[in-house]
Amino acid sequence: MAGPAVAQTSPRAGARAFAPGAWVLALAVLAVLVAPLVVSPYYLTKMLPFFAYGVVLLGLNLLVGYTGLLSFGHALFLGVGAYTVSVATTRLEIRSFEVILLLAALTAAIVAAPIGALCVRYVKIYFGMLTLAFGMLFYSFLIKFYAVTGGDQGLRVAQHSLLGLFEARSGERVRFLTGQFYYYAAAVLAILALVMWRIVRSPFGLCLRSIRDNPEKAEYLGVSVRRHRWYAFMLSAVYAGIGGALLGPVTGQVDPTLVYWTHSGNLVFMVLLGGFTSFFGPLLGAFVFIFLQDQIMSVVPYWRLVFGAILAAIVIFAPTGLMGLLSQRPTLPRWAVLRQAPGPEHAN
């Protein structure tokens, strides 16, 4: 279930290593499919946030890993998606979860458009700080506008139906979540992963990687750096919105802690933990994060202390994350090494 070890950043160079990676991927998919038959409901409910975070992180990694922009406010868009589910089910009487997902994607895109347009004018730490600021702005909005958002109490997520066929009947919420909703969320993750796989291998993805390598030289080749960064920002926000929408029904309740900056920090942590240089790294990161947190919390309450130590160890000893360790590459991927050299550091 741990996700596959395809640690390639380039599709062509991947030809050699593809075969084992494909096997791991197939095994992971199989494990996800059969898990409801063998795994206890407790662990199945832990898989649901994994699917949701998986979607969010696929989007976040488009920004972090492929475009080279580190966002510290990405929980904002996750929150937008989650609140969309709540508002749609409780106020707008929308039941169809497909419509809700579309609505969450759309709302996230609308919110991201102006924020992204401003943020992508800055890079590195300034970009990070600006996204952090917007995230906290949205947090304040959720806290203060009690009438709309329910303040710190948040809002509940009401009844919804999947594909117009399945609904949670009263008293059967857990069975619904670990049954139909489990497969539904897994399917959404699979589809969106496929779409993202195509995106990063398209010419658009090529341009993003050229921007990450060297924005100035990308401009010389006719790439509009700002516009491409903006598109990447919007796309990643849409993924975060959809992921957030998947998270809503799991908790049955949305509240402002979803968009608090520590939550954005968790997202970045998951990306680093799994490895941002690999396509599937962030998914592995989400998986390990969720189950490790669960295990540690059952032993000691100080999970942040343990996670802080893990984060430090990763940054120092395994900058390519768990996926980098698993794929047993002797050194950093080449572009990461080059980034540390003084060469391609022209900020746009």
Partner: peptide
């Protein structure tokens, strides 16, 4: 662009 292949470097433009 070091992370792209030679072919990709040429094709990007």
């Amino acid at each position: 662009f070091p992370d792209l292949t030679v072919g990709e470097n040429v094709e990007i433009s």
